[in-house]
Write a protein that binds this DNA or RNA. Structure first.
Length: 419
RNA sequence: GCGGUCGUGGCGAAGGGGUUAACGCACUGGUCUGUGGCUCCAGCAUUCGUGGGUUCAAGUCCCAUCGAUCGCCCCA
């Protein structure tokens, strides 16, 4: 073997790429309806952006970043998620100066240095949205609704929306202490991951599969939300109910990024082996300020493209594929060959999908090729037809043939396609 | 970072130490000197991920390495 693609990356080939294009088109079209506009930011940023934005103690920053020193001796990192870069661009371009809420979306590759498995790659793709400038719970609900609608319109079945409130820094601090108190008596019985979580992010212990038993009866964050947080969380639910988005409250839902406040949510679906999260997001009210902007609230989500594809496949959902060829042109003889080139161009300019042979193959082989392309028509032009100013057109589905004059040919094909 | 399984032609897949590497699909050509989807015939891997070792002999055993895949941690 010579050079192989980097571990955990994939080549998206014709046949597969059509599915991506379909999903991307759906995302763009949906965002347009929800009035979100596209933003494209660099796929690498100063490492510090992610350290500050995503959080120093997150797994992402601690062990999953593709970090390198560039020739100017700067530490750069491939983006491990989309929000930090969009926040940076929002601040740097002073979009907060606009009168309306900034509603943005992105589609693109993200990079995390992890061991690949079903639904997990080192280069993966996310479709995400971010809304800056509003604290109103209706926009939390809108973001959640957009993701849900996206899955639904793609044909995904049985998508669950789990939501929680992770509070604000004040009530979370209180809760954090309560959780530590709760686990203190069993601290040395916890698994080693949880022992370190105990100090760093005790809420995660509740998520641990090994230590489920110790988590029973643990206090939930919802019991410690202050007035503001409770009201906000309730309002988000009310809006979602009004929109008829089915939700499940999961008081143990904790996300892997540090920046969330208030609303946190995940979309789940079966079909990717051990992984069930297909997207997630939340509100991040302190983040813009942390990145250095004048502080503006934000909410957003990120959906994994690969995971959508995997679930679609597991559920046997069909994705529309590219239309077949309209016309396959066969030229026999040198003079006819040149006429074919000319007609091919005319057909294409006229809006038809047309193809010819480039390998000097015999008629029979060309017919087979036309068949493989599922061509609607095969047009045959030999020197004798050419001499008469005619062309033979075969309807592949029925096998019928007719003779057309060369002048009418392109127009006739165009008319057929319109049917 | 750790653990399980796997790595043979364009694809799927036999072969588990003994020397021409099955078979199926696809493809190419012929049967049909200008007509597809059917039939029949022929062709299509100096080579079994890579490197090293054991042996008279290695896809076949051993080690390493790379990759795939599944799982753990965590997430998209």
């Amino acid at each position: 073997m010579s050079i192989q693609k980097p571990k955990g990356t994939q080549d998206l080939l014709p046949g597969e790429i059509e599915k991506w294009q379909y999903i991307e088109n759906k995302a763009r079209e949906l965002c347009s309806r929800f009035n979100y506009r596209e933003i494209r930011t660099p796929i690498f940023e100063n490492t510090e952006l992610f350290q500050r934005g995503v959080g120093e103690t997150t797994d992402i920053v601690e062990k999953e970043m593709y970090t390198f020193i560039d020739k100017g001796d700067r530490s750069m990192s491939l983006r491990p998620e989309g929000t930090a870069g969009v926040v940076r661009a929002y601040v740097e371009n002073k979009l907060y100066g606009e009168p309306d809420v900034s509603k943005l979306y992105y589609i693109g590759p993200m990079f995390r240095y992890e061991q690949p498995q079903a639904g997990r790659y080192r280069q993966f793709h996310q479709f995400g949205i971010e809304a800056f400038g509003a604290v109103d719970p209706s926009i939390d609900a809108e973001v959640i609704a957009l993701g849900y609608t996206f899955y639904k319109e793609l044909g995904l079945k049985d998508v669950t929306v789990e939501i929680n409130s992770v509070g604000n820094p004040a009530c979370r601090a209180v809760y954090r202490e309560k959780i530590q108190q709760f686990f203190a008596p069993v601290k040395d019985k916890l698994c080693k991951d949880c022992q370190s979580r105990y100090d760093r992010n005790p809420m995660r212990i509740l998520d641990c599969k090994i230590d489920q038993k110790y988590g029973e009866g643990a206090p939930t964050i919802l019991e410690y939300l202050d007035e503001e947080c409770t009201v906000h969380f309730q309002a988000v639910q009310d809006h979602l109910n009004a929109m008829e988005i089915p939700i499940r409250i999961n008081p143990r839902l904790v996300r892997g990024l540090d920046y969330y406040t208030h609303t946190a949510f995940e979309y789940k679906a079966a079909g990717i082996g051990a992984i069930d999260t297909i997207g997630g997001g939340g509100r991040y009210n302190g983040l813009v300020g942390q990145i250095g902007g004048n502080d503006q609230p934000g909410v957003g989500l990120g959906l994994g493209m690969e995971r959508i594809l995997l679930v679609l496949q597991a559920q046997g959902v069909d994705i529309p594929t590219a239309p077949p060829l309209d016309v396959y042109l066969i030229g026999l003889g040198e003079t006819a060959e040149r006429e074919v080139t000319k007609l091919l161009q005319q057909l294409r300019v006229a809006g038809l999908k047309a193809e010819k042979d480039y390998l000097g193959r015999k008629m029979k082989a060309q017919m087979k090729s036309a068949d493989r392309y599922h061509a609607s028509f095969v047009a045959i032009l030999g020197d004798d037809e050419l001499a008469r100013g005619e062309i033979t057109v075969k309807t592949m589905a029925t096998g019928e043939q007719q003779t057309l004059s060369l002048e009418q040919f392109v127009a006739a094909m165009q008319k057929q396609k319109a049917l």
